[in-house]
Amino acid sequence: MGAQQHRQRQLPLRPAGPATVAALLAWYEAERRDLPWRYGPRKKADPYRVWLSEIMLQQTTVKAVIPYFQKFIARWPTVAALADAPLEAILQQWAGLGYYSRARNLKACAEAIVRDHGGAFPRKEAELLALPGIGPYTAAAITAIAFGEKATPVDGNIERVVSRLFAVEQPLPGAKCEIRNLAATLTPARRAGDFAQAMMDLGAEVCTPKRPSCLMCPVQQDCAANARGLAEVLPMRAQKAARPSRYGVAFLVQREDGAVLLRQRPEAGLLGGMLEVPSTPWNDEAPARREALRSAPVTTSWVAVPGSVVHVFTHFRLELTVYRALVPADASFTLWAEQERCRWVARRDLHGQALPTVMKKIIAHGFSTNG
């Protein structure tokens, strides 16, 4: 059946509204996902668990987050415990979740809740928004899910569900404001948290980005996109600009006793506060060998490891050549001017360090030729 014929289908029997909300809540009670940060329907959740899970879920899947969440809760079961934790320990536990600024804000937010709110999360969106690392979505999610207050969080799943329910054909990101307003028209005064989680689950399990299971959907008869044959193409998205590439050289230094040289990155900026393999700046063009060696952390003989390391960040693609060197354990040699940020770490202990994924890739590649 062609697209034109799809568009000529009969419109929904009823527009999305109170009946949609009732149907979704009933579906949620029967089909909700069992997640470690959730409590049952009609029950208020732990604000700490809601906040922690929502911060972790930004840019990351539920499946990937679950083991991280469980380890965090086991190690720091309360917001007060997290506030007391060393930042480096939090960064180590966070490694692999990306966006390390979120881990730093996690610590800062926990400290602010203990210091300014007596260890209890504030209930109102405006107060939550004043806390480090909490934006409009997270504030609304905590308000609705943890406290049952009327608030409308709109994540990617809810955005997709609403765009289909109301057949919003304007491409994203331009349609975000309209979608948020439409979502707010559905949010009930009671059970706002259950409704938000029902919408999230519907988007994750039924109203999926590709091949939505419309026949299994509890609100199919309310869905304008389904009636018009548009479910599989909504939400529409504006064409993205090409992701730029950056290049550099990483310097993997190993002592004869097995220790590896690492450097702590500045607190501000990408991967702030994390440990790294020292490298040149990441620029639009790969540096020549002579230029690259000006950034080397030690003066020694360097060997280029065949191949390269490629890592894709949200806004750019990074490609690094790796230079490797072996230096004596007891010899005297000079580190560069930033040696106060450098440390030697035994190779066997690298797994316990606050190393982001790209740095783990560099180390693995550097040792791939002869371990």
Rank of each mutant, 00 (worst) to 15 (best):
P297K: 03
A144C: 11
M56T: 10
E127Q: 14
T20L: 03
Q10M: 15
A189E: 09
T61A: 13
R317T: 12
P132F: 00
L355Y: 07
Q10K: 12
A144R: 10
A346S: 08
L11K: 15
E205D: 15
G40L: 13
R347P: 00
R190C: 04
A175I: 01
P36I: 06
Y39G: 15
K71D: 11
Q10R: 15
V260E: 02
G269Q: 04
R180L: 01
P47N: 07
L335R: 01
A126N: 15
R104L: 14
E159Q: 11
T369C: 04
R237E: 15
N283Q: 14
E54H: 11
R32S: 05
I66K: 07
K150W: 06
P86M: 05
S308T: 13
L35F: 10
A354M: 10
R246L: 10
V162S: 03
A304F: 00
L172K: 12
G269H: 07
V249Q: 00
R191A: 07
A227C: 10
S295H: 07
A184M: 13
S301N: 05
L87M: 13
L128D: 14
M200Y: 10
V50P: 14
G193T: 11
P173R: 00
P36H: 09
N157S: 08
L252F: 03
Q254N: 08
Q353K: 03
V298G: 02
V312N: 09
I134A: 13
K360H: 12
G352T: 03
E205Y: 10
R14L: 11
C217Y: 01
L252D: 02
I363F: 09
G98Y: 04
A196R: 05
R191Y: 12
A354L: 07
G17N: 00
E149S: 08
V298N: 05
E29S: 01
L234F: 11
A74L: 08
V345R: 09
V249L: 00
H311M: 11
H315G: 12
C223I: 11
A80L: 06
K361N: 03
W344D: 10
A189G: 07
T300M: 02
L131E: 08
M200P: 09
D46H: 10
T314G: 06
P281S: 02
M236K: 15
V50D: 04
A45S: 13
S308Y: 07
A110Q: 05
D46V: 13
G119K: 01
A224M: 14
V298M: 03
E149Y: 13
P15L: 04
T299A: 15
E111H: 06
Q10F: 07
A26M: 05
K240L: 13
D194A: 14
